[in-house]
Amino acid sequence: MFMGDVIAIVSGKGGVGKTTVTGNLGIALSELNCSVLLIDADIAMANLSLLIGLKTPPITLHDILLGSSSVTDAIYDGPKNIKIIPSGLSLSTYQRVDSERLITVVNELRSKFEYILIDSPAGIEKNVLAAMSASSQILLVTEPTAPSVADAFKAKIVAERLNQRVMGVIVNKVSNVKGEISDKEIMKMLELPCYGKIPYAEDIRQSFLLKKIKPVLIHNANGSSSESFRAIARKITGKDSITSKNKNKKKRGFFAFLARIFSRKSK
């Protein structure tokens, strides 16, 4: 019996792309032949099931946390062999659920999957603490902006208070415009390795505008955004090395500077 890796996707700030990262990263891990379960722990504002394309699942995480259904009844099939436990959309059941039971739910499933990805809510409230406590590692998602990095930092402090390991950070919505904080600066500020950068790309935006919403790895499997998710998945599985502060040393000098200008202009 093996113990699967449980990774909570946390950000602090809302709208940075936790659900997008969870869904697409799950598919990317599944493409690497890993058994993957996604849990939508955003109990109040659940929408992972929408991204994955589940149509109103009858039994959800709400029912499990209320104790009215067993864990296995709420596991559904997603694209590319991933499994998903969606959260309910009902506000009445949301108010009655005990999010702390998530820890027991995850422990029950740990031996059945290689990777369990928990899509955490925004903020640092009780539901986020439950997602963090249920996980074995935490992956922060941030935009390259000051408010987002500040909130990711707060989430990191909360994780440390719970004695949880923060494995690294993913920088999402990178568009290389003036004022954006670079991934190197983010790594320095958060004192964490960077698992990857995901571009602020049109194909990700488009994947939400379709009549049937699809993860970008399905919608545009060969695009650069999909490749970014695959690169992160390879790092998580240990097939690629992680970018750390030391390995990502910026080349100095006038010619290196010119090279950076031209490489950026060509993007």
Partner: peptide
């Protein structure tokens, strides 16, 4: 000379400005 060229280029091309608010760096002192 490199520093001077870098500064001029940054101004002209409007790139590479990755400075952030000092309040943020104060918070990161934890």
């Amino acid at each position: 000379f490199t520093k001077m060229i870098t500064k001029i280029s940054n101004k002209l091309l409007n790139i590479e400005d990755q400075s952030y608010d000092s309040g943020l760096s104060n918070m990161m002192c934890y």
